[in-house]
Design a protein around this nucleic acid. Structure first.
Lengths: 170, 170
DNA sequence: ATGAATCGTTTAGCAAGCTACACGATAGCG
DNA sequence: CGCTATCGTGTAGCTTGCTAAACGATTCAT
């Protein structure tokens, strides 16, 4: 009988991990994503669609290939995101006169409105998420997250991290 | 050279949101979860299984109902997590003499070893995630995340947030 | 003009995670 | 004794998000 009812040997592993930044980041991030997603779907958009609209807003008309690479989605997936957008008139697809294989995706007026509405909803969610923080705490958190993200994306995009990045399968 | 076809009206929405704490939290959390998950599966555990083992470690033998409620999983799901654990000898199921309907789930020696190994791997992942932060920055981040989490779980478990919690179906 | 490559699209299929329901075994109440 | 509730289990099905492969249309090099 190893340890019937006595967690004798080692100190509480779980409680120690409960406040570990990694786990909290993962868990809170999950909750945050859930809420953001809900905010967007309430406006009739998937997160990906929001991302696409944002890209079009900031960069002007783009071909689908560009959108696909920017948003890191397979072309075949992107199509399924664009179809409802076009059907709802948030976006138009017109053939690129220079290269008639391409579809230029253009953000419409209605699309801009929806984008703004969704962005506002997202802002609300965010304010609610961090309502427990003071302004300075919130910007502190932002700064720290920026540091972590920039480090990670650097490691990702430059070469690959020494430790254990490019793990695809298995 | 702003843009090809004039996103004239409003300022860059996307770039503004790129550094928003909510989005970063969601994205980084996603990445963190992916890495933690990978660390655990490399040790042959699902995150849930890790959670279960941790609970057993800290609280001693538990009945499945207790495990289910603690980990917030349906009983029928818990079973599918426990089966491989028992098959691998990380855990034993014995009938509770007091209530022979119950199965007392006990963490074995091997289970403890696996748990510790997985915990170590998780620690590694975490150190890698936050390698860009100094010690004080890291504990700052931890503190801020604790604040946010405690506020959120309070709102969740006490009553329900005023804004928009209990959204089940839509 | 012909063949190879590219862009967009469609469809089929997979995988993870979950819910819902039915079932056998046990407990406990009257 | 029966009736009802609980615990653990298995199974069937759904959803979401993805990958892979095939295809028509177009471009481009030769």
């Amino acid at each position: 009988m190893t340890s019937a009812t006595s967690p004798a040997s080692s100190p509480a592993l779980l409680d120690e991990h409960r406040n570990s930044p990694g786990l909290m980041l993962a868990l809170l991030g999950h909750e945050a994503m859930r809420r953001l997603r809900d905010a967007h779907t309430a406006k009739g958009l998937t997160p990906r669609q929001f991302h696409v609209l944002g890209l079009l807003h900031d960069r002007g008309p783009l071909a689908q290939t560009d959108l696909a690479s920017e948003t890191d989605t397979a072309a075949s997936v992107l199509v399924t995101q664009l179809n409802p957008l076009e059907a709802d008139g948030l976006v138009t697809r017109t053939r690129d006169p220079r290269d008639r294989r391409r579809h230029l995706v253009v953000l419409t007026e209605v699309g801009q409105q929806r984008l703004r509405a969704a962005a506002a909803a997202q802002q609300e969610v965010e304010d609610d998420l961090f309502r427990s923080l003071s302004d300075s705490q919130r910007s502190q958190l932002t700064q720290l997250l920026v540091l972590v993200r920039d480090d990670l994306t650097d490691g990702n995009e430059h070469c690959g991290t020494p430790t254990s990045l490019d793990r695809k399968t298995s």
